[in-house]
């Protein structure tokens, strides 16, 4: 593989990684400069623990969420947000920007897995 093809592949890979970030992570600041938002996943994820247990470790019927894959968690949160239902989790998911849900999923995935 020559160098220019390698660079092209790297550029495509980088684009794909960027595309994985939710679109609403992109914000324009007061000076008109576009930048990527960085929500505090640790703080936002802590707002899940009232129902899902400390560090996402649930004691009873509610799902444990600590240590699950970030992709699965984000997919579930997006599904809750957009499903049109009015259960607690669907309502709660609508409190957050996609970018925040993404940060929550990323943070929760770093916690010890508690099983289901």
């Amino acid at each position: 593989m020559n160098k220019s093809v390698l660079l092209l592949l790297l550029a495509i890979a980088a684009t794909e990684v960027a595309a994985a970030l939710p679109a609403d992570c992109s914000v324009t600041d007061a000076n008109g400069v576009r930048r990527v938002m960085q929500p505090n996943g640790e703080l936002l994820a802590a707002q899940c623990y009232q129902c899902h247990g400390d560090q996402g470790r649930s004691l009873g019927e509610i799902d444990s969420i600590g240590g699950k894959s970030a992709g699965d968690l984000y997919g579930d949160l997006r599904e809750f947000k957009s499903n049109g239902k009015a259960d607690i989790m669907s309502l709660q998911a609508r409190a957050y920007r996609d970018c925040e849900l993404y940060a929550i999923a990323q943070y929760l995935s770093t916690l010890p897995n508690q099983g289901d």
Binding site: Y49, H52, G60, E61, I62
Partner: peptide
Amino acid sequence: YKMMLAWANNLFAE
């Protein structure tokens, strides 16, 4: 009612 008890137990432990 069941979810109420599950919620409260997790909140208490948190």
